[in-house]
Design a protein around this nucleic acid. Structure first.
Lengths: 347, 347
DNA sequence: GGCGTCCGTTGGATCGATCAAGGGGGCGAG
DNA sequence: CTCGCCCCCTTGATCGATCCAACGGACGCC
């Protein structure tokens, strides 16, 4: 008497087959089917084959909810999806999300998005955690002094941060980040190799640790090559307009032949100034941006830009998460990946 | 003898409280607690208050897996997350995803991302569906003649498509889309209002129904205003380079004073041509793009662009999904939303 | 032929919330 | 005083996969 029997009178919805259905059809017990799925080694080859065939015939797939309930896992990774601010070139997030989705899939996880509530930054995390809806989190905005990392640590919730705990030396959580200084160093060295000596910097205000990190890469590379930096740096807001103004001032006062910028947004401002002054990007004045945004790629004059290895970041994060979730000791507390340089016409 | 008792010897992991814990502490039955959460009307006010207080004290949140198992739902909406192709300005996807996440949250849903496998376009859907991991899908790429919509329909899986079933009149599924023709009509009329009469079109190849739809908006508006279109249209690949070439040819042969483009990518090509020819965008020649991408917003010369109402699309999709999932009759098979025009310096 | 080991299999219990009935108290009517 | 009824709450069963402890057959050894 199969399960299908007393459901044959059911209406439209076709019930997916259960493990018991497979067991009955294959003439084995439920546990055997379960083992066929989760511990194939425990079965005799011929039995395994028979069960597998039945699974294929019925199109059986283990019920997620039931498995989640029993094993107390969900195979889901939570990610707070913050809205991209309009008016800037920074579209890093969606590239990262995609990389994360791909990397997660390979590890058997799916990505669950939940919205950012500025009123209550930990609300979303708290809900998902208490309802055991996700196995772990990926935290992406650690730099704003957000309480999330600290809170999650305190809750003993498994998570990996994309971004260093800049402002908190006591933070004990695991993180993955991109070496911004190495990126700007790469950009600066590239310009030096092209013969530039007067290379200017346009970055963010001093309260941004990321901005200061990127600036440090420019400073150190200049010094290492015996080049002066005096009067060649500017710190502004991260908007196109500010980049344009800063570059105009720098051109007037210090006559640089190249610019390294903390973002593509600022680099666009520089290109704007060059355009107004009839200077050819790449020929008269070189420009390098940061993040390899769509703007850099699509702009008629391709913008050379530092590209974060987001695919690698995602893989590293998922790798670390797996270790965390299987309670393996995590090798190192932080991983720092090196960006590359996408060279285009502007340099 | 509470549940905590025989777990007091447990190690690190703090078990979240269960419904039974709350029930015991509040001195009521499990079902009463369940009702307090799901059907508050069934409880006497004082009982409800007492249970609610206990829930707050314990920080109880219903276990997702258990609820999912019993109710055969997951409160998850599946979305195949396709990688943005590099080199184009089209970053519509992440704006849409964000809108969807927000709209879903308000309806009590979360968004589950799964990767696109080009080898097996329905593989991801099939897995999630058979394992009852999601309640419904949002399908975003209906225009490529993809088999997903038809397959999901056949499986009786609940889903809403973002995009009309262009090539399949027999499709019976529910969809939400943006009226591209209305968008380009808006753009064209805007240019006419500014005094332009020779308005050119640069669009996609004829095999793109979306492209033809957008083109139709330009054609109809031109005709409605008694303006000629002969020799003013071009169909090319959706890359910057093609937009630049097409606009150069059109300028030489037909001397248009304005361009309406099927995408921001093509519009960037037009701007490039203007730049080379020392023509000022907006003053000498007007340009309008489509999608209001970051490029349009960040470009030093702000690009006027047709903006899809993705927030409204997401709300409409979630609204429709709710109706589908609660087996309410869906009012109409398709919903067509009207885009707006983001006017900037280029027109 | 008897006995013990090994390998694979079996039925039962379990995870935590919800569904479908069942029960008890209070009140008004007979 | 008893019956009936309604309202509010409780009880046992259930969703489907996994864990646990115990069972059965086959084989080798003495």
């Amino acid at each position: 008497m199969g399960r299908e029997d007393h459901r044959s009178g059911s209406q439209l919805p076709v019930m997916p087959p259960t493990l018991a259905d497979v067991a009955e059809r294959a003439g084995v017990s439920r546990q055997t089917v379960s083992n066929a799925v989760n511990n194939p080694d425990l079965l005799r080859p011929d039995t395994l084959e028979r069960v597998r065939q039945t699974i294929a015939e019925l199109g059986y797939s283990p019920n997620r909810a039931a498995r989640n309930l029993r094993t107390r896992t969900s195979s889901l990774i939570g990610l707070r999806f913050t809205p991209r601010q309009e008016g800037t070139a920074n579209a890093m997030m969606d590239r990262f999300v995609h990389s994360l989705v791909e990397a997660s899939e390979e590890a058997g996880y799916h990505v669950l998005l939940f919205p950012a509530d500025d009123e209550d930054p930990i609300g979303g995390y708290d809900n998902l955690l208490r309802s055991t809806a996700v196995d772990a989190f990926v935290v992406t905005d650690t730099y704003l002094g957000n309480p999330q990392a600290a809170w999650l640590s305190q809750q003993r919730a498994p998570f990996v941060a994309f971004g260093r705990p800049w402002d908190d030396e006591t933070a004990q959580h695991v993180w993955v980040d991109v070496d911004g200084a190495a990126g700007t160093a790469l950009a600066t060295q590239h310009l030096i190799d092209r013969g530039h000596t007067r290379i200017a910097w346009i970055g963010w205000r001093k309260d941004s640790p990321i901005g200061e990190d990127r600036r440090a890469g420019w400073v150190s590379t200049m010094r290492a090559n015996g080049l002066a930096t005096t009067g060649l740096a500017s710190r502004v807001e991260d908007v196109v307009h500010s980049g344009a103004e800063a570059s105009a001032v720098l051109l007037d006062e210090s006559a640089p032949t190249a610019f390294v910028c903390a973002s593509d947004t600022l680099a666009m401002g520089v290109l704007h100034t060059l355009w107004i002054r009839q200077l050819a990007p790449g020929r008269d004045v070189a420009v390098v941006g940061f993040d390899d945004s769509q703007v850099a790629q699509v702009y008629p004059v391709g913008l050379t830009s530092v590209r974060q290895p987001l695919e690698d970041v995602a893989v590293e994060i998922v790798h670390t998460l797996r270790a965390l979730l299987s309670h393996q000791p995590v090798e190192s507390r932080g991983a720092l990946l090196t960006p590359t340089l996408a060279i285009r016409e502007s340099s």
